[in-house]
Simulated scan of single mutants.
Amino acid sequence: MVTITVAGTAHRLVPAERGTVRLRATREARRSADVVPFVADLHARLAADAERYVTAGAATRWSADQVYVSTVQRYRRDSDVAETFQVAAAGVAVRFSDFAALSTWVTDAGAVDGVVVDGVDWELTDDHRREIEREVRAEAVRDAQERAATYAAALGLDVSSVDAVYEPGLRPHDQLGLEGASVVQFGHRASADHGGPTVSLRPERIEVSARISADFTAS
């Protein structure tokens, strides 16, 4: 009998089904009285937009931060003299299922003075992600079985049993420290300059991957 140890891998690229837009209302001035009312008003408008998108069915949920104020030091150009400024900011995040509406909001909101588009996070729905993960894990196991059978045949043997299956990092004395079956998101970061051109957004594809190692006995 011979022990055959192999790796099994699988991956799948799946079109994104949700896109979460992250925006900030922000302003900087010497006095907090010059920034807080402006940011609070703009933030309320963004939150109202977000709620309308959810009500219309174009988005599934939204959230908003409170307005916060911080102090920063800015140096005058070609000088060692620092000046103190107050910065007010508040964020809004909206999870869209309608990507046309997402693009429209990023374009419209990104053109407003005081709005910064921090990015878009692409993802799958939770149920679909779990379904794809199960399928990819099974594909990784089948890949390992095929590899073991190929090695066994080259030795003039047949695989008689599987002795163990491990996700990366779980095999005894394995120092790789890798993750098991997982979703890896390659998020497309969107940005918009104030008054800049229309922002074109293309949903990213999400890579769902799995990797295992397995011990087989051939005889």
Rank of each mutant, 00 (worst) to 15 (best):
A7M: 07
H11Y: 12
H11T: 10
R12N: 07
R12E: 15
L13K: 07
P15V: 05
A16Y: 04
R18D: 00
A40L: 05
L42R: 08
H43D: 02
L46W: 08
A47L: 10
E51K: 11
Y53V: 08
G57C: 10
G57T: 11
T60I: 14
T60G: 12
V72R: 12
V72H: 11
V72I: 15
D78Q: 09
V81D: 14
A82S: 14
E83I: 12
E83H: 12
T84S: 09
F85T: 02
A88K: 04
A89P: 00
L102R: 08
T104C: 00
W105A: 07
D108V: 11
G110H: 08
V116C: 00
V117P: 09
D118A: 06
W122Y: 13
E123M: 10
L124R: 06
L124V: 08
E135D: 14
V136L: 03
D143M: 02
D143C: 06
A148T: 03
L155Y: 13
L155K: 09
D158Y: 04
L170R: 11
Q175I: 11
L176C: 04
G177M: 05
G180S: 09
A181N: 09
V183E: 03
F186H: 10
A190S: 13
H194G: 04
R202G: 07
R202N: 12
P203Q: 03
P203G: 05
E204P: 00
I206E: 01
E207V: 11
S209Q: 13
A210P: 01
R211C: 04
I212Y: 05
S219P: 03
